[in-house]
Design a protein around this nucleic acid. Structure first.
Length: 346
DNA sequence: AAAGCGGGGCT
DNA sequence: AGCCCAGCTTT
């Protein structure tokens, strides 16, 4: 088919040189695909290099502690990817004797591997004819074929998967999959795509109907909610502070942070005084406290805007489980906390 | 079917 | 301020 030939030819000329394109080792391809989920190449690249260097084989990754994996993942976001990565590595080592799954169906059994990632690994490493559908593929196909089905709907997912599967080059599924993604990433971009130099000018429906900006169609996501975070930065005279591990459901699971007090609104100094005084670490204690940032620090996540204040509390001693402040960088922390640690003079 | 999950970059 | 990114899991 002409679409195929044009696309793969475009790719042969325009593909970027990237480290995971130098290998077909499924462990490395898997690492790169997990890192690149919802993440641009530029942001993921240094993490890929770090993981390959720190964990050269799936055995190295499996035998590490989850805390080490999270630390290396720090700053990349969507931390369930790191936890699932570690879980899957142990599954490969313990259940599959270190032998990586070599087909779409078995790849799907790995935690954190869904339809896209299983298709990517199966095609790239094992030449299986499984079409990938990522954000790039949605965009390219919706524009080229003029499809209005919302890409983030169940109907859209099925429709675009079926279309991609129909189009995939059976002779070279790996090249086709990477070509269509690369084309979406570097030429058929969300904003200001390079239509002027596009090889699909004649046949692209969106271009010829002047609908490039209208496609793809996407259902709007809910607006981010505002939350108010007050972090208590304890400091003892012997150079210790308190970090707590985030447990349970929400954001930053298994990462560390300072003791947190969430409030209904932004607390002024006069309002937080009593709240601090009721903290369990301060029962019958003598301490002084001060406001670190007068203006709230707004940390923006996809679904939440965190309006944050840090409060520094000085006191003589802290409990046994307090940590030395010169060891604080050993812990995996969210970027919000990491930024504070870098700016605060411990 | 919908919600929840990060952080960076671009317009 | 809004949208997007080599998506997946849970509800």
């Amino acid at each position: 088919m002409i679409f195929n030939k044009t696309l793969t030819h475009w790719y042969s000329i325009n593909k970027r040189s990237l480290p995971w394109r130098e290998t077909k080792n499924p462990y490395y391809i898997w690492l790169s695909e997990i890192i690149l989920q919802q993440t641009q190449v530029k942001q993921g690249l240094p993490y890929y290099e770090a993981f390959v260097s720190e964990f050269p084989t799936v055995f190295d990754l499996a035998k590490a502690d989850e805390s080490e994996v999270l630390k290396l993942w720090q700053g990349l976001g969507y931390y369930s990817r790191a936890r699932n990565l570690h879980t899957a590595a142990n599954y490969v080592v313990d259940t599959l004797n270190g032998l990586f799954p070599d087909n779409y169906k078995d790849l799907l059994k790995l935690k954190g591997v869904g339809d896209y990632t299983a298709s990517a690994i199966a095609s790239i490493c094992f030449n299986e004819e499984t079409a990938v559908v990522d954000g790039n593929v949605y965009r390219v196909l919706s524009r080229y074929f003029g499809i209005d089905t919302p890409i983030n709907s169940t109907k859209g997912a099925k429709e675009f998967k079926a279309l991609a599967q129909e189009l995939i080059d059976k002779e070279q599924p790996a090249e086709f999959n990477q070509a269509i993604m690369e084309f979406g990433a570097t030429q058929c971009k969300p904003k200001n795509p390079d239509c002027k130099i596009c090889p699909f000018q004649e046949s692209c429906i969106a271009f010829n109907k002047n609908r490039i900006e209208a496609l793809p169609v996407k259902i709007r996501m809910a607006k981010a909610q505002i939350k108010h975070y007050n972090y208590l930065v304890f400091l003892s005279e012997d150079g210790k502070t308190v970090l707590e591990k985030r447990e349970g459901k929400g954001i930053w699971q298994n990462l560390y942070q300072f003791p947190l007090i969430e409030s209904k609104h932004n607390l002024k100094s006069s309002e937080i005084k009593d709240v601090i005084s009721r903290h369990k670490l301060l029962e019958n204690r003598t301490y002084t406290w001060s406001e670190y940032n007068e203006d709230v620090i707004i940390h923006k996540l996809s679904h939440q805007h965190l309006h944050t204040k840090f409060w520094v509390i000085n006191l003589k001693t802290l409990p046994k489980d307090a940590i030395a402040t010169n060891k604080i960088r050993k812990f995996a922390v969210p970027t919000l906390i990491g930024n504070f640690i870098e700016s605060f003079n411990f």
